[in-house]
């Protein structure tokens, strides 16, 4: 009993749990930023938007993993050719939803984009603040 054996589904569960904890953390962070904001302005709005998109992407991906788990193993054949690979011939709603959720980059790209814009705006705000402080000193 000292050493437990970890079989194949454990990786899936761990990953899904990670997604879940990530989602909870993001919800918690968004809640805190709402009730106890440390700042306002465009940069913080972009930052919150980034978190929202990360949350959406996380949920989206979680669903994709779940749909993937629902599909039979035969549906995922080792690709002989990336150009000709296709999803299982018998389409089901699950397979179709899986197919759609695989386009998760349409959510994670905006998330990282908003994060970048947020950081840029933070830098710009600081630069302006320093310039104004410099003018005040003069």
């Amino acid at each position: 009993m000292a050493v437990q054996v970890h079989d194949a589904p454990e990786g899936y569960y761990v990953h899904q749990m990670a997604h879940f904890s990530f989602a909870v953390a993001l919800v918690f962070l968004l809640y805190l930023l709402h009730v106890r904001p440390v700042g306002t302005g465009k940069a913080w709005r972009l930052f919150r938007l980034s978190l929202i998109f990360f949350l959406l992407w996380n949920t989206w991906t979680f669903t994709a993993h779940w749909f993937a788990d629902q599909l039979p193993r035969e549906a995922f054949t080792t690709p002989a050719s990336l150009w000709t690979n296709r999803l299982i011939p018998q389409l089901s709603p699950t397979a179709l939803l899986y197919y759609i959720t695989r386009f998760d980059h349409f959510l994670c790209l905006p998330a990282i984009w908003f994060l970048l814009q947020s950081l840029k705006t933070f830098c710009l705000d600081i630069t302006r603040k320093n310039e104004m402080a410099g003018e005040d000193h003069e």
């Binding site: 690979n85 011939p89 018998q90 389409l91 386009f103 980059h105 790209l109 840029k120």
Partner: peptide, 28 residues
């Protein structure tokens, strides 16, 4: 069945773009 190529292309292109954007975000 459904062709997986669009998914591969979006994955590949999106991943490259993600790397660029992520590195830029890290720099900022």
């Amino acid at each position: 069945g459904l062709p997986l190529l669009p998914i591969y292309l979006v994955d590949f292109g999106g991943s490259l773009l993600m790397i660029v954007l992520a590195l830029s975000a890290l720099r900022h």
